[in-house]
Design a protein around this nucleic acid. Structure first.
Lengths: 230, 230
DNA sequence: TTCCGGATACTCGATTCAGAGTATTCGGAA
DNA sequence: TTCCGAATACTCTGAATCGAGTATCCGGAA
């Protein structure tokens, strides 16, 4: 995420979005987002909410409109959006929609370190994941059906359609990868299996990489210089 | 990301992965990851690297093995992984592979606030995004071809295959969504367009939602109670 | 009537993160 | 020979994040 924006937490965008509708106090913003199911797509927790609000005030994107108190409850500060806040909201949202950014997902991180576990275990773990993904997809379908029955237009739940599309793609990928590992059709699987066999028999990683071709065969020649890549 | 783990930054997992191969000093870890292209999948910056290393030491997952210095260069501290660190690496990696977590992507956040911009602008922005996604996919293909020509087994670049799969799915989704907005086939598009027309003509959001059915027609009845969902 | 759990509305401090900045060395060009 | 830019190897500080904790009120069950 570009830190170019003064306030970079997506929660700030959601806050601006709420205040573009009408003035609210922070807690009301949180319940509004929650009731609309947006906390599924935008990480929301109190600590961040209040600090983000403060930061928006500091940058002139929102301003306190009134503070009230009922009984001995804590004070409530109602905020309204400013002109600058309105443009920031529109520009920021436009940028997020039009420009892909690198978001680092945990599966991508895991896949990039995958060779650290033995192939058959990885295949098993990915098969587990597939089961869980199917469950999540089922839950998304159910939620969608509820929204449909309520007559809520698709527009307002489009983010869950997106999630569905992405999770489906992940499922396909994971199922295919597990299969290709099982069948050793994934390039490098034999190498991978052999390395973990040697390690299981007590050989250290350093011994193996010291003379990879000897321990692993010709396929391992690429490992000799520390896998330089582009 | 579950904060259940003592050190939750995925960079820590990468550090453990490197040290599982052999002892290294932090800067060497960073260059190793970089040369293997892993910084594409795991966010890496110095500040985080050094604090993550310190945190791993504190939790007994790695330990300093030696500190050396050459000339008047800064000291280098070489770290090695501990027993506890090895199991943490294996368990953590297994968990990441087997268990989907909610990662909040910026597009999902943007889509969930999409109604904040008028439909035709959103369609245009999504079409822009599609262009950029095609470019990125092209770059991924090119990178893959380079790896192939170098004889690097698929295993070691699997994360970029994953990224390719996910970006393709995103592209399909975005293209389809833009079309459905343009053609008003997305449920709620007419409502959406009408709201922005009214706002463009000076009416405030609050006036509109005060009597949605009157301003927007029957389709807007769902807006009357603040979009309760689930 | 009293108790309890859930909702209301924040506050606080301890991490964690980010990335610009610092200081040194090295290799090659001029 | 000297200069410059790239690489080496971190350090530092302010900002962001998180989620547990606090205090109050309300409605219903016992």
């Amino acid at each position: 995420m570009a830190t170019r924006r003064r306030v970079s937490n997506p929660l700030a965008l959601a806050v601006l979005g709420c205040l573009a509708e009408r003035p609210m106090h922070p807690y009301e913003i949180s319940t509004t987002l929650r009731s609309r199911g947006k906390e599924q797509s935008i990480k929301l927790n109190y600590g961040s909410l209040y600090s983000v609000v403060e930061s928006l005030v500091k940058h002139g994107l929102i301003r306190p409109q009134a503070t009230t108190r009922e009984g001995r409850r804590p004070e409530r500060t109602v905020y309204e959006i400013t002109e600058a806040g309105t443009s920031e909201f529109e520009e920021w949202l436009a940028e997020l929609l039009s420009t892909p950014v690198r978001d680092f997902t945990s599966l991508e991180a895991a896949l990039s370190l995958m060779p650290g576990l033995p192939p058959d275990e990885v295949a098993r773990l990915l098969e587990d994941r597939a089961v869980r993904l199917r469950i999540e997809l089922g839950a998304l379908d159910a939620g969608q059906q509820v929204s449909d029955e309520m007559g809520l237009p698709e527009l307002f739940t489009i983010e869950s359609r997106y999630r569905h599309a992405i999770l489906s793609a992940e499922l396909d990928f994971v199922v295919d990868l597990a299969k290709r590992i099982r069948s050793s059709k994934l390039g490098g699987t034999k190498l991978w299996r052999r390395i973990h066999e040697l390690r299981a028999s007590g050989m250290s990683f350093e011994e193996i990489t010291a003379d990879p071709v000897r321990h692993l065969g010709e396929e391992a020649r690429v490992l000799a210089p520390p896998t330089a890549e582009q």
